[in-house]
Amino acid sequence: MAKSIESYMPLSETAYYILLSLKIPRHGYGIIKYVEEFTNGRIVLGSGTIYTTLGKMKKSEFITIYQDQDRKTIYTLTSKGEKLLELEVKRIKKIYEDTLKVEGILNEN
């Protein structure tokens, strides 16, 4: 039986940012550049990490690949991948809200 989406959660930081960047179909190198710019250089993904993570995600059907007109490989989210990202975004938002709440309580004291 296929593993449930929830069993992949929580995602690692690397996996989360890769999925986030794939809201738009991108090349492997495009993902690295995007994540680096988006996080202001906080996360610089190694190409080996990108290759293995994309491979794993493809295996668990969160992403799928296409070829563009230059025959370069493009990665994009599947509906299962979109669902995973949605759940993960919700979870992280909750964490963020909770963190703010705790900080608020601490500041009041």
């Binding site: 930081e13 993904l45 990490t49």
Partner: peptide, 9 residues
Amino acid sequence: PEFYSNIED
């Protein structure tokens, strides 16, 4: 430069 950017990999 790191080929694998995280320790788990």
